[in-house]
Each structure stands twice: as C-alpha cells, then as structure tokens.
C-alpha cells in the first residue's frame, strides 16, 4: 500500500498530510503537524501520556492507525488553550501544583477535558476512574485529582449566569 494523503480536523482547523500505511495518529501529530504536546511514552497504550480526543473521546494516539480516523476531529492540548489563555483545567493544574516532571501532564489534562465535557459535576471517584489509564510517577496522583475537581468547580461557576 502506498502512502496516502490524510485529512483531519485538528483543533478546529482542517489539516492534510501524507501518512505511510499504518502510521499512528501520534506520529502524524508530532512529526507531520508539529504538535508535540501529546508524548510518546510506552507506545503500547498503557501509560496514557499520548491521550488526545478523537471526536470527543479520549484515545491513546499511539494505538490509533491514522487512516481509521480520517476526516475525523482531533483535539490536542494545543487546542485547549484559546487565544493564549489557559483554560480552567490548565490553570487549576498550575494552581493546585498538579505537575512535577510534566511528562504525564498533557495526557492528564486531555482525559480531564473529556470527563468534564460529559460530566460537569464529577465525584472524586469519577475523576479517579477517568485518570486510571494515565500513569504519573511523581505526584502520587492526589494533586491531580484535586486539580480536576477544582477545574470542574471553576467551570461550573463560569457557566452559571449571575
């Protein structure tokens, strides 16, 4: 099979690039589109640091063959920031000190985005379940759980008209 042109909507913008057969979504994001927030950790779907949203669902981009999501919509950490402003999840991660070495952070933020998109008022158990596919080796997870709860609270407050 030859390489082919693949079209994706990435962070709201249509992007086209050439992909070899079987190329992973992660490789295409990082190498063809220069979007390097999603990290390559285990490359077998076990660590979660490559997580991006595909049509709103969190996916391990290292396991997704890019042609299987052609013409789909992909959201990466780069698309979370709008107009240079950090969103509630990102700023809560900073304020709650939910990052240490930072290698898991982009994946953690993306699963948090997916969680809050479908459940604006999650319980702590909901948060723990949402991040249970993402490995953090530094923080002991607690600051991350607190940050996501705080982000949910901030987002709910903004949604309520005063």
């Amino acid at each position: 099979m030859p390489s082919q042109i693949v079209s994706l909507v990435v962070n709201g913008e249509r992007r086209e690039f050439i992909a070899a057969p079987g190329a992973t979504l992660l490789a295409c994001l990082r190498e063809s589109l220069g979007l390097i927030a999603a990290k390559r950790g285990c490359a077998q779907g076990a660590c979660g640091t490559c997580t991006v949203l595909v049509d709103g669902r969190p996916e391990a981009a290292c396991l997704v063959a890019v042609e299987t999501v052609a013409d789909g919509s992909v959201r990466t950490l780069e698309g979370v920031t709008s107009g240079g402003e950090l969103d509630e999840v990102q700023s809560a991660f900073i304020d709650c000190f939910a990052t240490q070495c930072g290698f898991c952070t982009s994946g953690m933020i993306m699963v948090a985005e997916a969680l809050l998109d479908r459940n604006p008022d999650p319980s702590e158990d909901d948060v723990i379940e949402a991040i249970s596919g993402n490995v953090c080796r530094c923080t002991g997870y607690r600051p991350i759980v607190i940050a996501i709860m705080e982000a949910a609270r901030r987002r709910r407050e903004q949604a309520v008209p005063r």
Binding site: C42, S132, V145
Partner: peptide
C-alpha cells in the same frame, strides 16, 4: 517486560497522606 505487566498503584490505590 513493559508498563502493561509492571504493577504500580494507580490513583484508586491512594492512601490519605
């Protein structure tokens, strides 16, 4: 041999500290 087989506590195994 890899993360899939190497056991580590996840966020649900957290003690209160």
């Amino acid at each position: 041999r890899d993360f899939a087989g190497y056991l580590m506590p996840g966020p649900a195994d957290l003690p209160i500290q």
